[in-house]
Amino acid sequence: MNRELVKKIFLPLVVLVFVLQVWSGIASIVNEFPTPSDTYVAAFGGVTSEGDELTGVLSDPFYENNQDDKGIFWQVLESLKRVFAGFVLAIIVGVPLGLFVGMSKNAQYALNPFIQIFKPVSPLAWLPLLLFIFQDINMTAIATIFITSIWPIIINTALGVKSVSEDYMNVAKVLRFTPMEKVIQIILPVSVPFIFTGMRLSLGIAWLVIVAAEMLTGGIGIGFWIWDAYNNLNYYHIIIGIIVVGLIGYLLDLMMGKIADYFDYTKRGRA
């Protein structure tokens, strides 16, 4: 069998055993900290070490008791909806803005200071302001995602435009391309890999942001679900929540990576 593959599977398992050891160690020191086995029970159902019989969070993710009590699937779905809404908005606004900044020196001079100043602002700093404006949980979460995930898209798109070689532009000039043709036939194809890098970073940020935003806004969503678990002293769910958030973030990144590769001409047609 392929040695690389064996290593890829075996080595993470070694680390997993180590992590579980550390976790058990912490659980034995910190009072009420869930052990790995009890967390497993809380996730997939069974009887805990204290004799409580539990239905697993992950074995019944689709239940809906009432508006405020829904399975983890619905929580995640709600968060994903917000993330995608904010993310798509960020693409719709960010890509044209990035093209503009990349193509026009004046636009770059005009906008760069603002991009640099707003880029490092924590999403949580925007949240109160946006909550005050929208007075609505969904809108606030979406707007927060939009405003924090737009920067990498703008910056990377502009970078992509700048990477267009002078040679290609000379070809466009000789053929008398209109500005629109230049954008569509030359600038966009060159920039697409950069744009997708920006989108990948943005989606990563968006997924980071949503958990924090939902903790503050409340309602439904994986972020609030974790916070709610804390308020109910349900520590198993906090750990399950962390793992679920991590797995979904990883899947989102994999997905964006695949889409990016598909549109990247440098990765197409090569054996």
Binding site: D167, N170, K173, V174, R176, I186, P189, Y265, R268
Partner: peptide
């Protein structure tokens, strides 16, 4: 005045669009 297709250029580095 300015470039135009009646004066086509073959560039040293070919300048083909790689995509």
């Amino acid at each position: 005045q300015g470039p135009g297709p009646e004066r086509a250029v073959v560039f040293q580095n070919h300048s083909l669009l790689p995509w």
